[in-house]
Amino acid sequence: MPFLRRSALALFTCLALAPVAQAWGPLGHSVVADLAQRHLSPAAAAEVEHLLAAEHTKSLADIASWADEIRNDPAQDALWKQTRALHYVDFTSGDCNYTPPRDCKDGQCVVAGIDHYVKVLGDKSQPDAARLEALKFVVHFIGDEHQPLHGGSRDDKGGNTYQVQFDGKGTNLHSVWDSGLLKTRGLDWKTYANELDARGAVTLPPAIPPQDNAYAQWAEESCEISRGIYPDGHKIDQAYVDRELPVAELRLREAGRRLAEVLNLALAKG
């Protein structure tokens, strides 16, 4: 086999095997979805069950990572390309003050994505298929927005190009926050959700004046948190895990409660 062809094949293989960053990863997204489902109103729970029937499930956790999974489905390639910029928001000025014309041009960010799909979900004149798709996006995007590096203000693609050493291996900071930190607990998503829910109702941060857009505030919170999570010397040690894991778990709890509140409002009767 010619050298160039062998090199191209090797490069393709490495890229194919490389982990793809996903906010929280399946573990975190399932935890957020399950926490939310435990606190749905009867009306919202009934509507969720009705919509999920088409997926042959009753669990929000089962569809929580769908918005990431479509990137690997050729049949969903157009939808992935249409929505992939809705998983995050870049605070391009370097500060954490959300300014739509600057940070969300043409509605291409997670703040606008949540707003759009919540409206579709709550519109009972829409076909069930469209509302089910919207439910999948809402569940996922609210989880995404609470991962601090999906609302960053640094020029490193949300920590994807910030290399670190973690557990004796090279990776990037985004991957650590997607799943590495959470996996240090060694829990499956149901057990993890049980443990977090047992801590009781989470106290949410107060509204940030003059911000009147809740979805924007959640992104701003992530941005502020992201500023303090870059490790000294690009190394993730046990002290870092002990310090930052509670931050990640708090964001999971906040996302679960907020997702429940959004669904309760969007799916209220009438």
Rank of each mutant, 00 (worst) to 15 (best):
P2D: 13
A8K: 08
L11Q: 10
F12C: 14
T13G: 13
L15C: 13
L17Y: 05
L17C: 15
L17T: 12
V20I: 13
L27V: 08
L27Y: 03
L27W: 04
A36Y: 11
R38M: 11
H39C: 09
H39R: 15
A43R: 08
E49Y: 07
L51H: 04
L51D: 10
K58E: 13
S59R: 15
L60H: 07
D62F: 07
I63K: 08
A64K: 01
S65N: 14
D68G: 06
E69F: 05
I70Q: 06
R71S: 12
Q76H: 03
W80D: 06
K81Y: 12
A85V: 06
H87D: 06
T92R: 13
D95W: 00
R102F: 00
R102C: 07
D106L: 11
C109A: 05
C109N: 01
C109S: 06
Y117I: 07
V118C: 14
L121W: 00
G122V: 09
A129T: 14
L132C: 00
E133R: 14
K136Q: 15
F137P: 03
V139W: 01
I142T: 04
G143V: 07
D144F: 01
D144Y: 00
P148K: 05
H150L: 03
S153K: 02
R154Y: 02
K157Q: 12
G158Y: 02
F166Y: 01
D167Q: 15
D167S: 14
G168P: 04
K169Y: 08
K169G: 06
G170P: 09
T171H: 04
T171C: 03
L173N: 00
S175V: 02
S175L: 15
S179H: 10
K183A: 12
D188Y: 08
W189T: 11
W189A: 14
K190C: 08
N194Q: 15
A198G: 15
A198R: 11
V202M: 11
L204H: 03
P206G: 03
P210F: 00
A219M: 07
A219G: 09
S222N: 01
E224F: 00
E224R: 15
I225S: 08
R227F: 09
G228D: 06
I229W: 05
I229H: 05
I229E: 03
D232S: 11
D232W: 03
D232F: 04
I236F: 00
D237Y: 03
D237P: 04
A239R: 11
D242C: 08
D242H: 07
V247E: 00
E249C: 10
L250Y: 06
R251V: 05
R253L: 05
E254Y: 03
G256F: 05
R258Y: 08
L259F: 05
N264A: 11
G270D: 15
